[in-house]
């Protein structure tokens, strides 16, 4: 569904992604893990058209995304849940969600938008009671739900998430990731970027490990979870135990 070949991303003369190749097949949940500054967000921004300075190939459903604007890419079926959520704090939860449907909001589609709102509210029931509240007054976890809900409102075929666990308590992380697993089981293709390797790999089908702009490891999730290299660098003994105890 998504095929990236030899992708290089530049910030001026700095090169942040140095020839990455990954592929995401329909219906898969792929985890991309890597430490701070390894280029995860850069890679995602390139896919979503937010960073136009890249070389290589990004092919989505057999069409190159080269030169497309972010709205055009959303229209093609890729939605991003950006790093740090980036919800609109002064706007109500409802308005935040509706903005997610901006690209497909034509009068004729109004019914679909209402249906999608219903779907998001079923997925995250807490948002129902908070619909008219400014999104900035929600808790971090609820805000993340708004961000995911907003991305789903565009009816994506590929959902991309940039560190949805950031700043959340382990229990909430688990809840959010479980929701992603449910969405995958319903047929949505997901590309999940995480530093929380253990949790991310647990729900993933396959994974990639990114290090200073290069893919250093890839394989099925269970392979990566047992890989010594990954354990040493990303899971860490204590870290692993901590999560074993909780999840």
């Amino acid at each position: 569904m998504l095929r990236i070949r030899n992708l290089k991303c530049y910030y001026g003369r700095i090169i942040a992604v140095k020839g990455v190749s990954i592929s995401v097949r329909k219906g898969e949940l792929i985890s991309l893990i890597g430490a701070n500054g390894s280029g995860k967000s850069t890679l995602l921004n390139a896919i979503c058209g937010l960073l136009p300075t890249w070389e290589g190939e990004i092919i989505f459903e057999e069409i190159s995304l080269r030169g497309l604007s972010p709205p055009a890419i959303v229209k093609r079926g890729i939605s991003l849940v950006p790093e740090g959520r980036l919800i609109f704090p002064p706007l109500s939860v409802m308005d935040n969600l509706k903005i997610g449907a901006y690209t497909m909001y034509r009068r004729k589609l109004h019914k679909n938008v209402l249906e999608d709102l219903e779907m998001v509210m079923t997925l995250f029931p807490v948002l129902k009671d908070r619909a008219d509240q400014p999104a900035g007054t929600l808790s971090g976890g609820e805000q993340q739900m708004v961000a995911i809900g907003r991305a789903l409102m565009a009816r994506p075929r590929l959902l991309i998430l940039d560190e949805p666990s950031m700043g959340l308590a382990p229990l909430l992380v688990e809840k959010i990731l479980k929701t992603l697993a449910v969405l995958r089981d319903e047929g949505l293709t997901i590309l999940l970027v995480e530093q929380n390797a253990q949790a991310a790999l647990k729900i993933a089908d396959r994974g990639y490990v990114l290090e200073t702009g290069k893919i250093v490891l890839q394989g099925t999730a269970s392979e990566l979870l047992t890989d010594d290299e990954v354990k040493r660098a990303y899971l860490g003994k204590d870290y692993g135990d901590f999560y074993e105890g909780r999840i």
């Binding site: 991003l80 980036l86 609109f88 690209t103 907003r150």
Partner: peptide, 21 residues
């Protein structure tokens, strides 16, 4: 929807772009 999108630009143009406005 235009009004909502305008307010989202006011709040954060970057985020607004990211969701397809």
């Amino acid at each position: 929807r235009i009004g909502r999108a305008l307010r989202s630009i006011h709040d954060s143009e970057h985020a607004s772009k990211a969701v397809g406005v």
